[in-house]
Write a protein that binds this DNA or RNA. Structure first.
Lengths: 318, 318
DNA sequence: TCGATTATGCTCAGGATAAGTATAAGCCAA
DNA sequence: TTGGCTTATACTTATCCTGAGCATAATCGA
């Protein structure tokens, strides 16, 4: 019965849809996280999944290479989106977006490509908390969010909205949680505080700083940033973004750039060293201010030796 | 240029594909993790994504309800698969599977449905390490894996294979890592030790215990188990699987069932209590052996109060 | 030589974790 | 009624991890 239904509808072309592959391609240069963009910096590299592609990943690699001239290295799947009405295309046939996160070192983009590296904080100014937020932005955000909360109908809803805003944005003495990138973006969308919300015909008040993107690409980007910020804490993925040799400060700056927060220098070094993630090259960094630093390289061995980092269950030995 | 290419191929129906929605629906009963299965326990609930569905999730909910009579509660996306050759359908038109993880309490399945709850360890006997593996299974596994490693061409490859097997299966004095469910399944597939590998026309030697499924459903199930095992450690999702009131031991047994490992009783309680995840109902469990235990309920407040659990960067306060 | 800047080593307190001991509170059979 | 079995629950102890800060080293340039 249910099985029959399933088989029947599987053969017909009635339910044919199209699938887009979208890439969040990240690099870090001079302590700034960048993403690869096309279409005058308003879109992420993307293209349809076609018959010719052997798998989703190969399709993605083909598109990114075609659009940016940049071959992909480390890649992992992010999320599959398919909401109608998000991205402006309310009445179009079903189209889903399968998004990927890619990590590389910045590289010159080939001639004749419209691709560029753009700083990701252009799209999410509020996500850079390394020097604290500029006072003006902090004030704008807080007041707009408060206004949105107040505009709810019942006091219960008002309280609920403000609690959500306070948790995601670290207001009311709460700590900032750098991983809530997507939640913050979705809240701003819901509150009508970003251009995408206006475009999708939701009521909007004034809009907050931050460059918009086509479709729901900024949402996909938020998903990618969130994933990366979570992942650098338990997997050695930062090294995909580093040159072959680097100083510990450069490594720290890269992590800080991605996390949007500052870390404690000495403890950061202790962490890196005790996990034996790096080894000295023997060389010393040149062209530096202050005491010259040792150069390190990633110990690729760790990938084979260990599986992951941590558990949190009070396991029993017996 | 690249942009033009993209638009051109986006309009035509040339790249139309079909998308299947697949659900890993989990419940825990009497300390055993179950999954909802159809087709004589050989497949997961699934169906094509259709025009009528407003979003992926609604489509999934519709299919699961139609096939099992069981409405979905908590749902999260797992992964999108699209490899040709996996699932036997090498020459079929492109079809992708978008998989979801759902958590519920076990419930009677409506009359006339082919759906059942099956213990998930029937499909992955080696994943239940609560009582250690049955000696026979442990021996079979180890020897088959060793044989597979030895069958590599160069000694380098042999060593590499054995290292992978040892890490994922906790051999050679290594610790068992309960989260590597998918890696273990993929390794067994690659080694030709499971029926699915034979079906996809890879060379197989003898096969290992564990019920196969259609297509790559067992791979999807492995993905779901892995996700759930990871998630119970940092998000209070176990409570989706618990009745309204429960004792701490029941909670512990559920966690152990999912993780496939035993936990330290006293420390488990301390963890739960210090995180204030539960509150006493005031009632006492009836029908028990031994000293009666207090009944607890989940404190739903925590979902609003906190965002998540933990970070691992040595953040700086200044 | 002093001051600025970065590198690097080390200490210390507090909290979290793993493991185990001890006691309480029920049931049941002898 | 008691002793044994089972589970609940309270505490203790040693160890490790983490956040924070102090101190010293090495280099450059004014």
């Amino acid at each position: 019965m249910a099985g029959a239904t399933r088989k029947a509808s599987k053969t017909g072309a009635a339910n044919a849809i199209t699938a887009d592959l979208v890439a969040v391609l990240v690099a870090v240069t001079d302590g700034e996280p960048k993403i690869m963009t096309i279409a005058n910096d308003g879109a992420l590299p993307s293209g349809p999944f076609e018959f010719a592609h052997r798998s989703l990943q190969t399709g993605l690699r083909a598109w990114v290479e075609a659009q940016t001239g940049h071959p992909l290295g480390y890649v992992e799947q992010l999320y599959t989106f398919a909401d109608r009405g998000r991205g402006g295309d309310a009445k179009s046939p079903h189209s889903i977006s399968i998004s990927y996160l890619g990590l590389t070192r910045e590289d010159k983009v080939g001639q004749g490509f419209q691709a560029h590296w753009s700083g990701w904080y252009e799209y999410f100014p509020w996500e850079d908390q390394r020097a604290g937020l500029p006072t003006s932005l902090a004030k704008t955000l807080a007041s707009r969010l408060r206004a949105w909360a107040k505009s709810a109908e019942t006091t219960g809803l008002q309280r609920e909205r403000w609690q959500r805003a306070a948790i995601t944005f670290g207001l009311d003495e709460r700590d900032w949680n750098e991983e809530l990138v997507l939640q913050r973006y979705e809240l701003l969308y819901e509150a009508g505080l970003i251009p995408e919300a206006a475009r999708d015909r939701r009521s909007t008040s004034a809009v907050i700083p931050g460059r918009p993107m086509t479709g729901d690409h900024r949402r996909i980007l938020a998903t990618g940033i969130a994933r990366l910020r979570a992942k650098i804490k338990y997997r050695p993925v930062v090294f995909e973004l580093m040159p072959a040799e680097f100083t510990l400060l450069q490594l720290q700056r890269s992590v800080e750039a991605l996390a949007g927060r500052l870390v404690h220098k000495q403890n950061f070094r202790r962490l890196i060293e005790q996990q034996q993630l790096v080894e000295e090259t023997g060389a010393i960094a040149a062209d530096t201010v202050g005491r010259p630093a040792k150069l390190f390289r990633f110990r690729h061995g760790v990938l084979a030796e260990r599986a992951v980092a941590g558990t949190k269950l009070p396991l029993s030995r017996t």
